[in-house]
């Protein structure tokens, strides 16, 4: 392959953010905050569930963050951010009115269309519920297009649950089965205790006609995919969302390489079938 230079058109600057303003914040847990952003030029950001943006904090830096919700028409972009470094600290401590630069969205998201007509099992671990929240909202908005829908959610402790109010609402519905489990709990926890895979045997789904969308620590995703595989689900029907260091989000910086794939461009969502072999290699 030779690049024909005359055909190259420098399109819009791929690394140029647009200014967005924080319009609302909600504290989720001790270290995690949900923020609603609005583009200052009034033009909302159109995204698909599972895509991410790059958020730039003035003078501090830029990080990839999954889109957790929003609506381009209403000019609302929702992100849930866990404070684990300088940039995420800056985002989590921002007040309404603070401006950030946001570019994107990037990446290939969850298979919302391919999942139509069958059962859907959504499995989230910890902060992994954030990129799956738009999936759940989409499923519920188009409920008739899907079979049985379940959400299995595991966290470390009840204090680490995201979107508690929404979880309660979803639990109260008859068209989605919601199971929540934690690794450990003090008194006053009425939910489950144990690994999220334990919940797989309790829900109704057809292992041979299901799409699973799984996001959480890599080991958790691997264990979920393995258990579902043992129950008869094809690894190409189990989708996982991968994460690696990322600087540019457009395939130039090289950081997010995962074997032959650039997670920013070829992912972040992959079928388990595509990444299974790689998930057996450490430090890849």
């Amino acid at each position: 392959m030779t690049v024909v230079l005359s055909t190259i058109e420098a399109t819009a600057e791929p690394m140029l953010p647009r200014p967005f303003e924080v319009v609302a914040t909600r504290r989720e847990t001790a270290d995690t905050v949900t923020l609603d952003f609005a583009a200052t030029d009034g033009e909302g950001l159109q995204f698909s569930p599972g895509q991410f943006t790059m958020i730039y904090a003035f003078g501090v830096g830029e990080v990839p963050i999954s889109v957790a919700g929003g609506s381009a028409d209403d000019n609302v972009l929702t992100h849930t951010v866990r404070a684990v470094g300088a940039v995420t600290d800056a985002i989590c401590s921002a007040e309404a009115g603070t401006q950030f630069g946001i570019r994107g969205p990037y990446g290939i998201g969850w298979p919302m269309d391919a999942a139509e007509g069958g059962d859907v099992v959504v499995v989230a671990g910890g902060i992994g519920l954030a990129p799956l929240r738009p999936v759940i909202l989409r499923l519920l908005d188009n409920r008739a297009r899907y079979g049985a829908v379940s959400l299995l959610y595991g966290t470390r402790s009840p204090d680490d649950l995201l979107y508690e109010e929404e979880l309660r609402q979803w639990r109260g519905r008859f068209d989605i089965e919601v199971e929540v489990t934690v690794d450990r709990a003090a008194d006053g926890w009425y939910g489950d205790i144990g690994l999220v895979t334990n919940l797989l045997t309790r829900i109704e789904y057809d292992p041979e006609n299901v799409t699973a969308m799984v996001c959480g620590p890599e080991i958790m995703m691997k264990v979920v995919a393995r258990e579902m595989g043992r129950a008869g689900t094809d690894p190409s029907s189990v989708y996982v969302s991968m994460e690696r260091n990322m600087k540019c989000a457009v395939g130039f910086c090289g950081h997010c390489q995962y074997g032959p794939d650039f997670i920013c461009r070829d992912g972040p969502v992959f079928t388990y079938a595509a990444v299974r072999d790689r998930m057996r290699v450490s430090e890849l």
Binding site: M1, T2, V3, L5, I8, E9, A10, T11, E13, P14, M15, V250, G251, F252, R265
Partner: peptide, 15 residues
């Protein structure tokens, strides 16, 4: 020619 493919030939164009 190889860097052309990286920066110009794989979707986005590096300015």
């Amino acid at each position: 020619a190889i860097q052309d493919r990286v920066f110009l030939g794989s979707g986005q164009v590096d300015t």
